[in-house]
Computed example of a mutant assay.
Amino acid sequence: MGKITSHITNDPSVAAKAAAFIELLKPRLSFLVAFSSGFGYILASSGQLNWGNLLLLSLGGMLVSGASVSINQIIEVEYDALMNRTKNRPLPTGRITEKEAIIFSFLVAVLGLYILYLSTNPLTVALSFVSLLLYSFVYTPMKRVGPIAVFIGAIPGALPPLLGWVAATGVISFEAMIIFGIQFIWQFPHFWAIAWVGDEDYKKAGFKLLPNNGRKDLNTAINIMIYTLFLLPLGLLPTYFGVTGLNSAVIVTVCGCAFLAQTFSLMRDNTDKSALKIMFGSFLYLPIVQIAYMLDKI
């Protein structure tokens, strides 16, 4: 029996299939969702931190997020095959069949929601389910309609910290809406910078994510700058309302100014290089800000 088990475990086809299923979940993105959920939970806990519930919340959030992006890839498989950045994903390459992906996504979603049901409260589960539906079945098809998709996608994208807060408190308070609002506004420069850099690839699939009729010009750069500018006052609201302290306010302001400064380069030269800097800046901004808030709270 031991030899049979060992043989199955070492079978390269089994290992490759397992790796493909994990890849389908986009673990790095799902981890960021879990991190943001944990951030909201810690911020709301006020010293009454339940580590078991925090771990289960993070796991459940990762699974629901993984199911959402898996469904996204099922719906967009023919478009993913057209783009350089996505053509090597498990579905376009045939490493996973569409039927396998559907069953897998369903099971992962059910497991994630069940874990949240056991460890949080009905409101958290309901909001998580709404997030999955919005991302998979509204945002995904709207990407080929127009830049309104970015607004729609920013809603489920901003829900993780709010979900963490609701998991800890059971209510959607104005503090929860503040941390939701910060992540909501952050997504516009984040998504638009990605769309600017990948514009040629996105056009192959018919995705329309950039504002200003999809043009990579000064007006689009100004849009990116304005939303980044909004992060400065928004970032101070947790301190103003006593959710966090002065130390995080200083860090958030410095990060916001550095992030904003990157948008001026894009307004000046309208180049992919400047957009790429904004994209990487957005990847740094959110976790640094959230860690600053958590450390200030703890």
Results as ranks from 00 to 15, higher is better:
3 K>V: 09
4 I>C: 00
14 V>I: 15
15 A>H: 03
15 A>F: 08
18 A>Y: 04
18 A>M: 13
28 R>K: 15
34 A>K: 01
37 S>H: 01
37 S>V: 07
39 F>W: 11
40 G>Y: 06
44 A>Q: 03
51 W>V: 13
52 G>S: 14
53 N>S: 12
53 N>P: 00
55 L>I: 13
59 L>R: 00
61 G>P: 03
63 L>N: 02
65 S>V: 04
66 G>Y: 11
67 A>D: 10
70 S>P: 02
72 N>E: 12
73 Q>W: 02
75 I>C: 00
77 V>T: 14
80 D>C: 05
82 L>K: 15
82 L>G: 02
89 R>S: 07
90 P>E: 09
92 P>K: 07
93 T>Y: 07
95 R>D: 14
97 T>Q: 07
106 F>P: 00
108 V>P: 01
111 L>Y: 00
112 G>Q: 06
115 I>P: 00
118 L>C: 03
118 L>R: 09
118 L>N: 01
124 T>I: 05
126 A>E: 10
130 V>L: 15
131 S>L: 03
132 L>T: 02
133 L>N: 01
136 S>E: 10
136 S>K: 02
140 T>C: 09
141 P>N: 10
144 R>H: 11
147 P>A: 14
153 G>E: 10
154 A>K: 03
161 P>V: 09
170 G>T: 12
170 G>D: 13
175 E>L: 03
178 I>R: 00
178 I>Y: 06
181 G>N: 08
182 I>Q: 04
183 Q>W: 04
188 F>D: 09
189 P>H: 12
195 A>I: 08
206 G>E: 10
206 G>P: 01
210 L>N: 08
211 P>T: 11
213 N>T: 08
214 G>D: 07
214 G>K: 02
218 L>T: 08
220 T>S: 14
220 T>N: 05
221 A>Q: 06
225 M>C: 12
227 Y>M: 14
232 L>I: 15
240 Y>S: 08
242 G>A: 11
242 G>Y: 10
243 V>Q: 15
246 L>D: 05
248 S>T: 08
249 A>H: 06
252 V>D: 08
252 V>Y: 04
254 V>D: 11
254 V>W: 05
256 G>H: 06
256 G>F: 11
259 F>L: 15
260 L>E: 10
261 A>C: 02
265 S>E: 14
267 M>V: 02
272 D>K: 13
274 S>F: 11
277 K>C: 03
280 F>G: 01
281 G>R: 05
285 Y>D: 06
286 L>F: 12
288 I>E: 07
289 V>D: 02
294 M>D: 00
295 L>Q: 01
296 D>E: 06
298 I>V: 14
